[in-house]
Design a protein around this nucleic acid. Sequence first.
RNA 1: GCCCAAGUGGCGGAAUGGUAGACGCAGGGGAUUCAAAAUCCCCCGCCUUCACGGGCGUGUGGGUUCGAGUCCCACCUUGGGCACCA
Length: 852
Amino acid sequence: MAYDASSIEPKWQAAWEQAGTFTATRSGDKPKYYVLEMFPYPSGNLHMGHVRNYTMGDVIARYKISTGHNVLHPMGFDAFGMPAENAAMASGGHPKDWTYNNIDTMVGQMKPLGLSLDWSRMFATCDPEYYGQQQALFLDFLEAGLVYRKNAVVNWDPVDMTVLANEQVIDGKGWRSGAEVERRELTQWFFKISDMAGELRDALDGLDNWPAKVRLMQENWIGQSRGLQFAFSTSEAPEGFDRIEVYTTRPDTLMGASFVGISPDHPLAKQLEAHDPKVAAFCAEARKGGTTAEAIETAEKLGYDTGITCRHPFDTSWELPVYIANFILMDYGTGAIFGCPAHDQRDFDFATKYGLPIIPTFLPSEDSSPELEEAFVPTKTEKVWWTRPINWEPEATGQEAIDATIDFCEANGVGQGVTQYRLRDWGLSRQRYWGCPIPVVHCETCGVVPERKENLPVQLPDDVTFDVPGNPLDRHPTWRDVPCPSCGAPAQRETDTMDTFVDSSWYFARFTAPRADTPTDMDEASYWMNVDQYIGGIEHAILHLLYSRFFARAMQITGHLPASAIEPFDALFTQGMVTHAIYKTTGTDGRPVYHYPEDVTLRDGSGFLADGTEVTIVPSAKMSKSKNNVVNPLEIVSKYGADTARWFVLSDSPPERDVEWTASGADAAFKHLSRVWNICDRIAAMPAEAGTQEPDEALLREMHKAIRDVTVNIESFGFNAAIAKLYAFTATLQKSKAGKDAQRTAIMTLAQLMAPMTPHLAEDIWAHQGGTGLIANAPWPVADEAMLTEDTVTLPIQINGKRRAEISVPADMDKAEVEKIAMAHEAVLKALNGGAPKKVIVVPGRIVNVVV
RNA sequence: GCCCAAGUGGCGGAAUGGUAGACGCAGGGGAUUCAAAAUCCCCCGCCUUCACGGGCGUGUGGGUUCGAGUCCCACCUUGGGCACCA
């Protein structure tokens, strides 16, 4: 009988479900293991990237079950967000219907993959049971001072009519709509993530099982810098502005200062603006400046001389002009700087334009000219020659001078060393309908009043329409107008909803007690947290993972997570994409025409259409509907079965790298599984003769090596290498002349080793060979050390580092004996030509190297 | 501009400082078959040799070492992150 996945796979999926194999249970006798893949957005389409992501998690989950763990492996949906509203606007339906229909569809696409998920824990973030608990968290955060409201210049997306976080603005465009982002001032809710910047940065060092790359990206994002904060005293300034605080990371260049610059949003600038139309005009112009990368790149440095002057802190007779400048950001440092044109290119450009002095504080060497063509900015670790050192040697590095200046300023009461972070607070308000409502009410007399917890969830109204842009909650009187929870007077609900990154910042904790009537159940959370292995895409390296780390800390402060869970993800793995070649020709209008893979015939690496036209092949492209190179998982499952798809996405490429889907590769995977199936059949049909000692032992030795290698590879995420070993062991078994018992042991072990990757086929082989119970519950095989050690080993003999011969010696032969045999080898005798070797290195069990 | 990572056959990729190229794809040869499909077996880095063998080979150039794909330095290329952050 041929291998038929379509009959095998549903059978075993039903068996697992009936046995409750993957329902997470607590018990004291086993360690727990929590494996989680980043939950999907319910777009309605499962793609190969999902299959790869979930298969990797599944391999880990199944492996951990068979190594005696209580495994939690849940799945849910990140279900709020704009595509649902966009769909409603486009087709007139309701975001809720669209979303829940898509969830049904995707569950239907996921189940045939045979994933070891505990479906009883499933939820979607748009379930009122979930977002109601999120509102409870919000209220607790509010009480703990972790959320606040402020007026802020925000990024406004004019197409989506919503505010975007800085991180959601890419090259000055909305991350989703691609529209040019405008600057608007609105009152917004913020999470105080910047308070934790130092802690979030320092704790990265403890995340040993995270990719170094992700830790580095977060470190750069948090952006710590050490510098000096001090004040210039002013003259001719309006009242209340007799000092201007500035922050600098280069206090060593203070003796080269030639102006003081303030942001157009600086309080002093605003003060001047109020009284002087010329200042107001300048500030308006400066603020308008585009936010696109090109605009910033090419923007001219603009300044407005306020007529105010500052006294240099080291020399009070030295006066510096105060400019309002368009390149100074209000929300970094103090919003004010001193400009040192000699050692900062921006300041250099500015000084050149406004005729300000350019005074170097250091030069490449003692005899260098002080005339500069451009700013001189060496690295801080390079030794340079100082023209006027304060308290350091004339030849010193920038870093040495910086440290010395901070010490000097602190000692003389001029300023103090300060650590600054680039990380800003997380603005969470969104002017959208399809999100978690912010549970507060605005009352004229009481101000911002939190909703009472017993009234949660503040549920989204269902009767809304999307025929006009903007937020339907704003124009829904019966939902919006409510009595104040505090005084009972007529008041209005907050109509902003939360950024969807909030939803995904704690779902992993909710999975530990998904039906609890508080956000978490501390007992369950203490048992299951942390996530032992988290798997997802590198695109979430910064936002989602940083926000989740913040949330875990905030949840600990508000009593929703134990202190042990403030770093919620013990280990992180970022998997690569599934790509596919693009086949294109050029149309009559000169534009590319993309062809479906099934319309292209491949011969010797070239591709042809049915009419013989050759197509251009672009390998390894991201799957995209517009490029006609999407491979649909359901089609693959119905053609080959889930096990083939799973096997393929794990083979060939290392999991952190992209893997290219190829039809020939999928065929090869299917053929291999068929081969294993046929071997199983053949062994079952073998007559039960007595085994023959030598072939039996040879087979079993290879089996134990396979156990060792596959185990090591699974534990280290080397799935492609594990699969390579399984191919090799299958070939050994196929050719084996061993007796039935040994072969039966081998095929059953092979099935066990394959079970994490191809669970259905493995179960079927197990049942076919009379295995006890489900292979999913069978204990993982253990390699027998005695079977791993060889009696004799083959040692290469190198002469001067080049391999020249081989000898076969007993594994435990001592060095001297090995050397004697090697020295008697004809290749060595020939190389020595009667002389004596300079040196002989014998590495037992490894190599012999003779130096002549 | 700053920071980081990676460069190995025709392709994807293996390789605790110890026989480079496991395994898969593509390619070639053979068995089986009336023939084909399917299946099975063998070959497959480059140059050279009838052959045995020899020479060269992990982006480039140096270095450390008995021995380097692996460690160190410089450079080149590709990919990624950040960027008017003082």
